[in-house]
């Protein structure tokens, strides 16, 4: 039976730490990430409680989050378009773990929201959308699938707390409590 030989030696963490010649190192690299032209405007819009997209003059798609180019047509995008923020939940999950795989005390619900962009081109595959937390829905809504297709809108942070960040939207919440479309 192939493979006939599989070299390699398993070692437990505590044994590895005891080996002579083992090296421990903690890197930290600091960055200042440029948001670029389109996202900078988008972030300023969030501060004002507005969700901005860019319109592609060629395919008439509204791109949210906005980009300076339309990746479908490879042309520069032109006008800014404000969307209401209302939309439908495409998919949603419940996370019981944090970024470094630690258990969370309170699970979080996260989803992809397909945003309404009436009058503009979209298809079943490609759409204007955001990725964010969901509130006002339960773990059971996720499991049963009730949350999928649910109409939602952004819940904004109070004006004085907004920083021009994606977190200026606290979460997306049901448009009308428990409405399922």
């Amino acid at each position: 039976m192939k493979p006939e030989r599989v070299p390699g030696r398993y070692i437990r963490e505590e044994d590895l730490r005891r080996l002579p010649g083992v090296i421990e190192y903690t890197p930290t690299a600091r960055y200042s990430y440029s948001a670029g032209q389109a996202l900078s405007e988008f972030l300023r819009g969030l501060k004002d409680g507005r969700i901005l997209g860019k319109l592609c003059p060629s395919c008439r798609r509204v791109l949210v989050p906005p980009r300076v180019y339309c990746e479908f047509c490879f042309t520069p995008t032109t006008e800014w378009v404000e969307v209401t923020g209302a939309g439908r939940v495409e998919t949603a999950v419940t996370s019981y773990i944090g970024a470094a795989r630690e258990r969370l005390e309170k699970p979080e619900i996260i989803g992809v929201i397909r945003l309404d962009a009436p009058g503009h081109a979209e298809n079943s595959f490609d759409f204007a959308g955001l990725f964010h937390k969901l509130c006002g829905v339960t773990e059971d809504d996720v499991k049963s699938g009730r949350v999928i297709g649910m109409r939602v809108k952004p819940r904004w942070k109070p004006v004085h707390e907004r920083m021009g960040s994606i977190l200026d939207i606290e979460c997306f919440e049901p448009l009308q409590p428990r409405e399922v479309v």
């Binding site: 990430y33 996202l39 944090g98 970024a99 990725f131 960040s165 994606i166 977190l167």
Partner: peptide, 9 residues
């Protein structure tokens, strides 16, 4: 900008 602030796994 848009994803990491949410603390994603």
């Amino acid at each position: 900008i848009l994803e990491r602030p949410l603390g994603p796994n």
